[in-house]
Simulated scan of single mutants.
Amino acid sequence: MRDYDYFLHHPGDEFVEAVLLDGWDHQSLWGWELGYYFLQLWRNDLPEKPYRWITPADHPLPWPGCVALETMRTTGADPVSVSRALRILAPPAVRSPFEVIQRELAENRRYAAEDYCAGQIDAYEWVLGHGTRCPGSGLAWPGGMPTHDDITAEWNINTGLLYDQVVMTDKHASGVDEALSTVIFTAIGKR
């Protein structure tokens, strides 16, 4: 099994997989059925019933990033651990995205007052190691350049936020999504 087996899973392909997160890995499951993703999180120390159970009927999760967000919210685990546990990290990078980042930053700085462009700038600056907060999760960042896995995990959490009923119209988060996806897909050679 690879950390990226379900990166960009195509909705409609049914599956059920374990959530391989420390402290939650004995019975926890996620997958796709009935038109949405589902999630069952069982704490290893409380195996009698699911700690959190999200079915397609009661809380639609349309993307793997939504599953990642709910897993992070429930378990308190960091975004990379969650994305690795769900196997939704991006495949390994094959090229540097920095030329694209520099070009995009120059373009977006012209429109920095717009929330969408500000979201892109925040994400690109974080990727370059200049941010103090992660652009998707909002967690404090210890400094330095994030790894490819850090970038993918933040993109997953941000995707979950975009589909969250409270955040879904946030233009800043939409800008973060565009920037992080540009970095990821450039790095894996898909752009």
Results as ranks from 00 to 15, higher is better:
residue 96 S to V: 00
residue 96 S to I: 01
residue 97 P to C: 01
residue 97 P to K: 02
residue 97 P to Q: 01
residue 98 F to L: 10
residue 98 F to E: 10
residue 98 F to W: 14
residue 100 V to S: 14
residue 101 I to W: 00
residue 101 I to R: 13
residue 101 I to T: 04
residue 101 I to H: 03
residue 102 Q to V: 05
residue 102 Q to G: 06
residue 103 R to W: 00
residue 103 R to T: 05
residue 104 E to G: 10
residue 104 E to Y: 12
residue 104 E to V: 09
residue 104 E to S: 15
residue 105 L to T: 05
residue 105 L to K: 09
residue 105 L to E: 09
residue 106 A to R: 10
residue 106 A to C: 01
residue 106 A to F: 01
residue 107 E to I: 07
residue 107 E to P: 02
residue 107 E to M: 13
residue 108 N to P: 05
residue 108 N to H: 14
residue 109 R to E: 15
residue 110 R to K: 15
residue 110 R to H: 09
residue 110 R to N: 04
residue 111 Y to P: 00
residue 112 A to P: 08
residue 112 A to M: 05
residue 113 A to F: 12
residue 114 E to H: 13
residue 116 Y to K: 06
residue 116 Y to H: 11
residue 117 C to E: 14
residue 117 C to F: 12
residue 118 A to W: 11
residue 118 A to Q: 14
residue 118 A to N: 15
residue 119 G to D: 10
residue 119 G to R: 13
residue 119 G to W: 09
residue 120 Q to W: 02
residue 120 Q to F: 00
residue 120 Q to E: 04
residue 121 I to K: 04
residue 123 A to E: 11
residue 124 Y to F: 14
residue 124 Y to L: 08
residue 124 Y to R: 04
residue 125 E to D: 08
residue 125 E to L: 11
residue 126 W to C: 05
residue 126 W to H: 08
residue 128 L to D: 13
residue 129 G to Y: 04
residue 129 G to N: 01
residue 130 H to M: 03
residue 131 G to I: 02
residue 131 G to Q: 00
residue 131 G to Y: 00
residue 131 G to H: 06
residue 131 G to P: 03
residue 131 G to C: 02
residue 132 T to R: 08
residue 133 R to Y: 15
residue 133 R to N: 12
residue 133 R to H: 15
residue 134 C to Y: 02
residue 134 C to H: 14
residue 134 C to G: 03
residue 134 C to N: 03
residue 135 P to G: 08
residue 135 P to K: 07
residue 136 G to A: 02
residue 136 G to C: 00
residue 137 S to R: 02
residue 137 S to V: 01
residue 137 S to I: 04
residue 137 S to W: 01
residue 137 S to N: 04
residue 137 S to E: 02
residue 138 G to V: 06
residue 138 G to H: 06
residue 138 G to M: 03
residue 138 G to I: 00
residue 139 L to Q: 10
